[in-house]
Nucleic acid binder design. Structure first.
Lengths: 217, 217, 217, 217
DNA sequence: TATGAATGAGTATTCATTCAT
DNA sequence: TATGAATGAATACTCATTCAT
């Protein structure tokens, strides 16, 4: 799917000979990201964005083909950045548990540095933009794949119990999103990652309780 | 908050003397829920709903004061039902782990029976309806509170390790939503609950790895 | 025009064999009149009226063909009553000044007794009801005609100066409406009529000033 | 439509440079005023106005926040203009009768020049726009105050009889409105003012009749 | 590149009127 | 007579997008 999908960036202005300079475009992206993080897609108007950037509405259309594309381009840019960070990390040959902990740390760090956009991503506005269910879906699956790989590696290494990686990846995906979005804390990304990793790795049961009591249930 | 907030249901038609027959209202709710589960709030028009139910648009307004209220009433009805189911369960004197497993089972069961509406709830359309951030927030906090209580009970009983219940409740909340929404499986609610509970309770680390290896990280 | 116009009352239910009893109809008229006096034609809904009378909305349509007819019937009933009172008075052989004063007294008396409906008449909602400009126009002209007759009589008698009766009738019509609608006073209808008549008959100029000074202007 | 057929107006503007800033707004005001003078507030739709101006509906909203605001802006503009004309006149040190006559002349002159808008003002659509009773009320009171001042001045000068200025101002207010609205005549504003002033100042009674006969009543 | 006036399809909501019971 | 659920045409307002300058 990642191969057939044409990236929003590539699509935009595919018909134009000129590629506009990036400065103004970045300005627009930043302003729009800020607004989209505060209000929903439909509640942010092109007027809002134009006013925030301090340009005329028409100017936005010199850089983006549509509101939808602007929105998706913001998301794509962010997805690409975090995903490439994560993939660079997972390319290393660390043992799976360490790898997972590092990944969590990078996610939370990226989150703290990009609160605005992440707030958008955390929302599930998939359906907001009619034709683009596949877009969010694509990135979700990619992330889940990444978790699955780490989990499989761990199982092979013997550091993880043999469980169904599909479900577990889904679990990690969901809990990370929840923590990112709702956990109010002054802690550093690393220490949040540490806490979360501890729960994921050891579970909630008290040691010893596991075998003896759980059996009775 | 739950006490001062006037429920959408109570508000609706507070001015009418007569309560219209429930059948037509249920029809509308069902059709609307179906549509809201497929498209976003803004992409579902009152015309869509009317057409789906097979009535004139005005008819909907005999039963609901506004589109927003229709939407919220669907959500409230569902929230109330599942929450009351869960609270009835947690009132029992089961040990915490069993309690948690049962709760998970009930959630997944309810989910399988109410796919449409749950798909709406799973989305975070909080911002879509400007004034109603508090609405979703209210129910999210209530669910998290429920998890926290079970976790505290378990810690006191000694069945759960002593961790921060706030973060852990958030983690469970997020992973459950993710599984509910994305896990495609033919399994029964109970067996999904079993699997999820197993991950939550034991974690992903292989037994024995925990102490020896984790220390090296 | 007065001859060709078919009265609203006559039109209503001309096609029915049964004439419903007047009681329920009167109830509706009273309630509607009250509401129309408080809000404008368009701001009063058939629901409002039905609720106020305490019947179902459909019931109103058993007595009136349309909202418009209900409105016009209220006005017609009132117009007819006051106009017949005035015409009975003008049929008497009083001298013109006394006749005028009596007419003013009757108008203000009727007004004080029918505040609600008069408030509607005082408003000029002529244009509110598309096709019925002629309706208000008809009654306005009838009233003006009545004033003109009195004025002509006075001029013939020598009690009034010879002026253009058309303009003067218009003047009296306008000032009476203004006093009716805006004069807040605890006085009796007769004493208001007395005051108004005094202004109409003597004017505002101080005696003596008239000839000497007015000439200089 | 605008694409295939070029209207006369568009052609006219084509060779000019820009349409002046306030021009479009004035166009809308003029068209709307015309329509509001023919039909009531509720019977004039934004579509009507847009069609009359020859622009899209949205264009109106570039210049006015709402239909209500458009309506009120028309009224306010007119009120302000005539009222400032009148107040400039009354600031002069003419004797009261002359002042009154001049004021009447200015009103009728303004009326003849602004038939459309004045027809709106003459109507009492106070209640049509719920929140804006106070608006019309404000301007009515201001006009009445103006009359009262002139009347008081006249009484002090000795040119007017000592009467109640409140009632008399109300009388003048009403009769002027009536003449403005209903008097069909080819006469000039000055000559209408002259006639009306004559009635106001001298009254209708024949000289000499006043004392002798009126007493008998 | 940039502008911003203009567009017009799209939508929630209202309410007089009807009609089966 | 009476009901009241159902109707659907009507309407103010929005906002992404276009285009002449």
């Amino acid at each position: 799917m990642a191969k057939t999908r044409k990236s929003i960036k590539e699509q935009a202005h595919a018909h134009r000979g000129q590629i506009p300079k990036g400065a103004r475009k970045e300005e627009i992206i930043r302003a729009a990201a800020k607004l989209f993080s505060q209000k929903s897609y439909h509640d942010v108007t092109m007027d809002d964005i134009a006013e925030k950037v301090g340009v005329a509405k028409g100017t936005i259309y010199l850089y983006f083909d549509s509101k939808e594309n602007l929105y998706l381009e913001i998301m794509e840019e962010t997805y690409e950045e975090i995903e490439s960070i994560l993939e660079r990390e997972t390319a290393k040959s660390d043992p799976a548990p360490l790898k997972l902990k590092k990944v969590l740390g990078l996610i939370f760090k990226f989150y703290l540095q990009n609160l605005d956009v992440l707030r958008i991503l955390s929302r599930d506005e998939t359906h907001l933009i009619r034709e683009h269910y596949e877009f969010t879906e694509h990135w979700r699956l990619r992330r889940i794949k990444l978790y699955e790989k780490i989990l499989e590696k761990g199982i092979n290494e013997g550091s993880f119990r043999p469980f169904k990686t599909e479900l577990t990846a889904l679990i990690i995906f969901g809990l990370v999103r929840s923590v990112m979005f709702y956990y109010k804390s002054e802690k550093s990304a690393e220490s949040i990652a540490e806490e979360v990793f501890s729960m994921i790795s050891e579970g909630i049961l008290a040691p010893g309780y596991e075998k003896a009591e759980a059996a009775r249930m």
